[in-house]
Simulated assay, not measured.
Amino acid sequence: MENLGYYNGKFGLLEEMTVPMLDRVCYFGDGVYDATYSRNHKIFALDEHIERFYNSAGLLGIKIPHSKEQVKEILKEMVLKVDSGEQFVYWQITRGTGMRNHAFPGDEVPANLWIMLKPLNIKDMSKKLKLITLEDTRFLHCNIKTLNLLPSVIAAQKTEEAGCQEAVFHRCDRVTECAHSNVSIIKDGVLKTAPTDNLILPGIARAHLIKMCKAFNIPVDETAFTLKELMEADEIIVTSSGQFCMATSEIDGKPVGGKAPELVKKLQAALLNEFLEETNAD
């Protein structure tokens, strides 16, 4: 199959899948999601993504009707059904199906598990990104990977209209994260990245970047940084599941970064190698 959808045990081509109109996702966006990539039909960093998935669900009081091991096995079985070994692997849980009511349904209403797979490769890290900055007007629980993504959708549209690839959010002068990525900076050989408080998503790729810096004895400073620090950084790095360590060349039309290219290349090579090793064919 070229792609694959799954809904509560039923699966088929994405173009042919349907879901109930009364699924709470349709009127409340009531659910959480996670995503990663597979290569050679092996899912990268699956344990870490599952942990974040269950943490997000728990923070919203959504009870997933499967164990972590059961969800992992479903995902592993699903990726084998898609022809391409290199896939974008996306899954979400929604708070059940029922007549529209703001209050949660009772425990007798089970949550709904969705899975969506499509062929997709990770990003080419040799290319540099162009960014824009936007005031962060999202709610105060950005640490939950909720399905309520309208602010990020609007930011993505503004980014595309500006001819850029990503938007950097800030609350007053504090940089938080990007519309669908984490952002970190390198200054004087130190990686600086925002703390994992309620204003940013604890990115899996961000965690791998920190781990790799520590392996190379690169100091890591997990404290908030400002727009001024962002613009004056030696390098600006954007991380997400499909782009492990992307450097930046421009923000709001102004040239930035490019002052520590060898350090960036070293991290990119190590992170790519980690991905290739974990997803290597047996």
Rank of each mutant, 00 (worst) to 15 (best):
K63S: 11
F244M: 14
T97G: 06
K68C: 09
M17D: 09
F88S: 15
A205S: 15
Q268R: 13
Q92N: 08
I144Q: 02
E135T: 15
R24G: 00
E232I: 05
D30G: 12
L209E: 04
A224R: 04
R206G: 06
G258P: 07
L149N: 01
A233Q: 07
A270D: 06
D234N: 13
G163K: 14
A155N: 01
G258F: 06
N101H: 11
P151A: 06
F275E: 08
L150E: 04
V89N: 00
N143M: 05
T193K: 00
N182E: 10
R138P: 02
E250Q: 15
P20M: 09
L201M: 14
Q92Y: 05
I210C: 11
M246T: 11
I132S: 03
K118D: 06
E135D: 15
H180D: 05
F44D: 03
I74D: 07
I237W: 01
R39F: 08
L4P: 04
C178D: 02
M78N: 07
I132Y: 00
E2V: 00
A233H: 06
W91A: 02
G58S: 02
Q165K: 13
T137R: 10
C178H: 05
C245P: 14
M1A: 10
E73D: 13
G98V: 08
L129E: 12
Y37D: 06
P151V: 12
F11E: 11
C213S: 08
K128E: 15
N55S: 13
D47R: 14
N8G: 00
I237G: 03
Q268K: 13
M246G: 15
K214F: 03
S152D: 11
L4D: 05
K266D: 08
L22C: 06
M17H: 10
K259E: 12
N8E: 06
I200M: 03
L227S: 05
L75N: 04
L80W: 10
V89K: 00
G5V: 01
M78R: 13
G242R: 09
N3M: 02
F244R: 11
E15V: 13
L263C: 01
R206T: 08
M125W: 10
E235V: 03
V25H: 05
M231H: 10
E235R: 04
V168N: 04
R24Q: 06
N273L: 14
I185N: 00
T18W: 12
G257L: 00
T94F: 04
E274K: 15
I74S: 08
K187H: 12
L230K: 12
A162N: 12
P219G: 09
Q70L: 00
D34T: 12
R171Q: 09
F104L: 08
F225C: 10
I236C: 11
E48H: 04
V256I: 14
H170Y: 06
V153K: 09
E166W: 05
L22N: 13
C164G: 09
L191R: 00
Y7Q: 03
F53C: 01
I154G: 03
Q87T: 03
Q157V: 15
V190R: 11
V79P: 03
D282M: 10
G258Q: 09
H170A: 09
Y33F: 15
E73Y: 08
G12W: 07
P105T: 06
F216P: 09
E86K: 15
T248A: 12
E48F: 02
D124C: 01
M212N: 10
